[in-house]
Simulated scan of single mutants.
Amino acid sequence: MHCPRRGELGRAGNPEDGPEPDVVLACAGDVPTQEVLAAAQLVRHHLPDLAVRVVNVVDIARLLPSGEHPHGMSDFEYDGLFTADKPVVFAYHGYPWLIHRLAYRRTGHRHLHVRGYKEIGTTTTPFDMVVGNDLDRYRLVMDVIDRVPGLAVRAAAVRQRMEDARLRHHAYIREHGVDMPEVADWTWEARR
């Protein structure tokens, strides 16, 4: 499990020594990680006052309590990363229920919302598959807005922009058969 420090994924979340997060964006898997990083960038751009923590889970067994698995974390460690009372939006490349099963005994489990594989999609572009499973950056930003207390009204315009981006994607892919440039080029922009 990795909580980014300054210099490593620095554009993704607030530094560890910064304020307690308002929301945690967590991920496991390569595509979910890319989408969480893009979502974090969108949140920082559109909602700069919101404190975001990004946690990349490399070994999902770490979500288990330390007494249940050799890789498991203590409650203290888990709460230190995910918090006990803040919303956690977790993007996972598998079935969402697995993350819930691994973390159901944790203090903040009721604040955990997992996006993952829904078996939706067909032969299409990579980003369209992500959108079809509601695992895309725009949906993750909407989840942040929906789950952070008091943010839904304040950020209604931002949420609408995210909805509009999903609609633009839908129209663009049907017309051109490829992902929108802003999505396809994002990984190159993030590396700069």
Rank of each mutant, 00 (worst) to 15 (best):
H2N: 13
R5Q: 14
R5P: 09
R6W: 11
E8C: 08
E8H: 12
L9G: 09
G10P: 09
G10Q: 12
A12R: 02
G13A: 15
E16A: 14
E16L: 14
D17M: 09
D17T: 04
D22S: 06
V23H: 03
A28M: 07
E35Y: 00
E35Q: 15
V36F: 02
L37I: 06
A38D: 09
A40H: 01
A40M: 02
V43R: 00
V43D: 00
V43C: 07
R44N: 12
H46A: 14
H46R: 12
D49H: 15
L50H: 05
V52M: 05
V54F: 07
V55R: 04
V55P: 05
N56A: 14
V57R: 07
V57D: 04
V57T: 06
V58A: 15
D59W: 09
A61N: 15
R62T: 14
P65V: 09
G67T: 14
H69G: 07
H71N: 13
G72A: 10
G72M: 09
S74N: 11
S74Q: 06
Y78W: 14
Y78E: 06
G80T: 07
L81W: 11
T83K: 05
V88M: 02
V88Y: 01
H93F: 11
G94R: 06
Y95N: 11
Y95C: 10
Y95F: 13
L98D: 06
H100A: 06
R101D: 15
G108T: 05
G108F: 00
H109S: 08
H111R: 13
L112A: 10
L112P: 03
L112V: 10
V114N: 01
V114T: 10
R115N: 06
G116K: 01
G116N: 03
Y117S: 08
Y117D: 08
K118C: 04
K118E: 11
I120H: 10
G121E: 10
T125D: 05
P126E: 07
F127A: 10
D128C: 04
V130A: 02
N133A: 06
N133H: 03
D134M: 11
D134R: 12
D134E: 14
D134I: 04
R137Y: 02
R139G: 03
M142F: 00
D143Y: 00
V144P: 05
I145E: 04
I145W: 00
D146L: 05
D146F: 00
D146K: 03
P149K: 08
G150T: 07
A152V: 08
V153R: 15
V153M: 13
A155N: 02
A155W: 03
A155L: 09
A156C: 07
A156W: 04
A157F: 03
V158D: 04
R159Q: 12
M162L: 09
M162N: 06
R166V: 10
L167I: 07
R168E: 13
H169A: 09
H169Q: 13
H170I: 08
Y172R: 07
H176L: 08
H176C: 12
G177T: 09
G177P: 03
V178E: 12
V178N: 08
D179N: 05
E182K: 05
E182S: 08
E182P: 00
V183N: 00
D185I: 00
W188L: 15
W188E: 15
A190E: 12
R191P: 02
R192E: 14
